[in-house]
Amino acid sequence: MKAGEDNFTVNARPLAARSRLRGGRSSLRGSLRRGFTLLEVLVAIGIVALVLVSMNTFVFSMGELWGKNTDLRLFELHVRNVTRFLERELGSAALPPFASVTEQGISVQEIRAQTGMTDNYLTFELPEGSRILNWPERALPDVMCALAVRDREGLVLLWHSRLEKKFADDPPRETVITPLVTEMSYDYYDTDFKNWKNERALRKNPAGEVVVPQRLRLKFIYGGRTIESLIGLPAVGQGMPML
């Protein structure tokens, strides 16, 4: 029995050593696995940090560029809004009751302004007035309007109602539409040569009558940048309902 026991004890010792060795190796592999996982997390955090820094740099640079061009975008937006406003008002003037098949809602008339000077102005009538008009008392309909461009003032709207008692005697009121317009010219279509001609003053026919243009051309200037806007004038009966 002792011999067997000794033999068993002797044989068990290498087995125990090999078991401890395998256990140590497993523990080492587990530690390595935990170490690699932590390393991967650190690498991922570093990559995310780099991406965030890059994104912040991109956002800040875009914000800086956006801020630098703010005035330009606002200027372009202002030009579009003024153009749409005039197109809408002139379009409504070309509808009844001030326009008919035989009479144009947009015409040229001689008007005496508040400066005392009399000149020919492009005129149109608004049956319900306009939202930009600041009446001293109750607002009135049937408003006669005219457009003018003046130095250091810009595009000016001259207006008064036909229902006012002193309509024929008092000069029209004045409202600045935009101070950024420095010039207003007129486009006429030449049917003979089939092209457009731009003129600084309203054209007169051989009989001496002022001719209504087909388009207005406004020049906006701000911060050294110039933008031209074209506004089509409705022709006789254009936009009217079919009878």
Rank of each mutant, 00 (worst) to 15 (best):
G23T: 13
L38A: 00
R215G: 04
D6G: 13
R150Q: 13
P97W: 06
L180T: 05
A168P: 07
R152G: 04
S161T: 01
T9C: 06
S229R: 03
A16T: 11
E87V: 03
G46I: 00
I177L: 12
F60A: 10
K219P: 05
V149S: 05
N7C: 12
F58E: 09
M1G: 10
E87P: 07
A148T: 14
E199N: 06
T102E: 15
S161C: 06
S130M: 01
V101L: 12
T178L: 04
M240A: 00
K165S: 08
T178H: 08
M117C: 10
L180F: 08
R25P: 06
L42W: 00
G23P: 11
E5W: 15
W66V: 13
E103N: 11
R152Y: 07
N134S: 14
T123A: 00
R88P: 11
K2A: 14
R73K: 09
K204F: 03
L218D: 06
T70R: 15
L126V: 02
E110A: 10
M242P: 09
V143Y: 02
E76F: 07
I111H: 10
A44C: 00
R225T: 13
Y189K: 02
S130V: 03
G24F: 13
L39E: 00
I45E: 00
N205S: 02
Q114M: 14
L140P: 07
L65D: 13
R225K: 13
W196D: 01
T57E: 12
M1V: 08
R131Q: 11
R150N: 05
G129I: 04
T115L: 06
L28D: 12
Q238C: 01
H160C: 14
E87G: 03
R138E: 15
L216E: 02
E110P: 12
M242R: 12
I231T: 00
P136N: 09
F75Y: 13
W196T: 01
R34H: 09
E110Q: 14
A235Y: 07
G46D: 00
I221Q: 10
I111D: 03
G116D: 01
I47E: 00
A94F: 07
T102W: 13
R150F: 13
G232W: 12
M1L: 11
D192H: 11
A148M: 05
L28G: 10
R18H: 06
L243N: 05
G237D: 04
G30S: 08
I132A: 01
K219R: 13
R112K: 14
V211G: 02
P234F: 00
E153C: 08
R34Q: 12
G23L: 11
R138V: 11
G24M: 06
L233D: 03
A17P: 05
S31A: 08
L38E: 00
A139T: 04
L77A: 15
